[in-house]
Design a protein around this nucleic acid. Structure first.
Length: 453
RNA sequence: GCGGGUGUCUUAUAGUGGUUAAUAUGCUAGCCUUCCAAGCUGGAAACGAGAGUUCGAUUCUCUCCACCCGCACCA
């Protein structure tokens, strides 16, 4: 048996349509409310998708919270006091004034065009009066319009201006406003971090690229509170954490990763410096994981807006300090898409094409599949059931598969990334050994049942 | 949001102003099968939504929705 894909030169570009089709066909991702025609920017995870997502999240949580003694987890409410988002700059920052060119259709940031920090529409209108479209050079710009990117709802039965609330546009908010609570209850000393995994909502103008740019997203992020003098050193530590987590903990090929440093004009309003890890998604290298120096922007803003003292008292030096914050933030959906893209492989086996998800075994939705070699031999099926029950008891996520012939089952498991297939044959009945077939090499080995349970 | 394209079983495709809407694959019931999608016999399963034209629309027209590709946007 030969697996020719292991010869070089086979690695071709992964197409988004292949990923989308596999995700649908095998129960990883479905369109949200599909039977009603879907909803742009919203996706549901299916039975296999949720397993993979949960494993990614668990791995991240382990690496960032459980394995450390100075990073603590929280799980904040999605809806917070609207004052939080005013103080954080999101109510203002989310309201970008934009102009369209009626001639060529290009859209531009009104404040950028006018070279101002103002977001006042009347003022911008004046400033932009004689401006030409930078794309086509014609004077055909519309009046500036704003697009509020935060999703709104209302609290209580009455819908009016006083009841407006926002779905959080990022999870960080509830970390900053809980920073004192966590510091005191955990008796934490600088530096320490607060981590959170949770949903956030953004009214993106145009959701794109499958689950890459969506309106409801899940973030994994950690805010690390430090003495300002430590910022450069600690910033680098978290940058390298992101890089090595992707390679060592998720098994992503470093050829698919690269660094991207934000230029001044593309930084978020809160960030002093920002580095993203880019991943080679089907549509090209795009942002996956950001490390930002948020300085004391957030704590200073909340301190001012709330009137509460958010300084940290440093007992050693007998001084009060407002911590700086280094943020490490990544989207779960993008991480999922990166893992799927990285793992997706097409290769030739005995002249046929096979699709195999070369997931890190710890991340695979199913740890293994158990099969009787033949379905119509009751003694094989009974024995296989025994082994299946034992494996299921030990590992939980084990799949039973007795459909079709053995080759079919192997291919089916390849496509969902199951690392090993355990097959019960006639020798098993004699000596209690089984064959274990490896997903990546297709090699088999014979082992005692006792050794695997 | 602008421009282009596409919507037919899970998936990939075919096709038609009046059809039992086809093929492959997957799924499924059974037979068969001693390790890489073999074969046989059955079965379930589709025209994105809404209007309009028409005796009759999956097919033509319009609107909407969704997805894909460019552009813009991505705080």
């Amino acid at each position: 048996m030969s697996v020719s894909a292991y010869t070089s030169g086979m690695s071709k570009e992964v197409k988004m349509e292949d990923i989308v089709s596999l995700c649908k066909r095998r129960g990883f991702v479905f369109q949200a409310s599909e039977i009603y025609g879907g909803l742009a920017g919203f996706w549901d995870y299916g039975p296999l998708g949720v397993e993979l997502v949960n494993k990614i999240k668990a791995e991240w949580w382990k690496a960032i919270v459980t394995e450390r003694d100075n990073v603590f987890g929280v799980d904040g409410a999605i809806i917070q006091n609207p004052k939080l988002w005013e103080a954080s700059g999101h109510v203002a920052g989310f309201t970008d004034p934009l102009v369209d060119c009626k001639s060529c259709g290009a859209r531009h940031r009104a404040d950028h065009l006018a070279d101002t920090d103002s977001t006042d529409l009347e003022e911008l209108k004046g400033l932009l009066k004689d401006k030409k479209c930078p794309t086509c050079g014609k004077r055909e710009l519309t009046e500036p319009r704003t697009y509020n990117m935060m999703m709104k709802t209302w609290i209580g039965p009455i819908e009016n201006d006083d009841s407006i609330a926002y779905l959080r546009p990022e999870t960080a908010g509830s970390i900053f406003v809980n920073y004192k609570n966590v510091q005191e209850t955990m008796r934490a000393k600088l530096p320490f971090g607060i981590a959170q995994i949770g949903k956030a909502f953004r009214n993106e103008i145009s959701p794109r690229d499958f689950i890459f740019r969506v309106r409801e997203l899940e973030q994994m992020e950690m805010q690390y509170f430090i003495k300002p003098s430590m910022q450069d050193e600690i910033y680098e530590e978290w940058r390298s954490f992101a890089w090595s987590f992707l390679i060592d903990r998720l098994g992503i090929d470093k050829e698919n990763l690269q660094w991207h440093e934000h230029e001044e004009n593309e930084r978020a309003h809160y960030a002093a410096t920002a580095h993203d890890v880019y991943f080679k998604f089907p549509q090209g290298f795009k942002e996956l994981w950001g490390t930002h120096n948020r300085t004391d922007f957030d704590l200073a803003s909340h301190q001012k807006a709330s009137g509460k003292d958010l300084e940290y008292f440093d007992q050693e030096n007998n001084e009060k300090v407002l911590p700086n914050v280094i943020e490490s933030s990544v989207g779960v959906g993008r991480m999922f898409l990166a893992v799927m893209t990285d793992a997706y492989t097409e290769e030739e086996i005995n002249g046929d094409k096979r699709v195999v998800l070369k997931l890190k075994p710890e991340l695979a939705p199913y740890r293994c599949a158990v099969s009787p070699l033949l379905k119509n031999k009751p003694e094989l099926v009974a024995k296989a059931r025994e082994v299946y029950d034992l494996m299921k008891k030990k590992h939980g996520n084990v799949m039973w598969d007795d459909n079709g012939n053995i080759g079919k089952r192997y291919r089916r498991q390849d496509e969902i990334g199951t690392p090993e297939c355990i097959v019960i044959d006639f020798d098993t009945l004699e000596d209690d050994t089984v064959t274990i077939r490896d997903r990546d090499t297709t090699n088999q080995k014979r082992v005692k049942i006792d050794e695997i349970i």
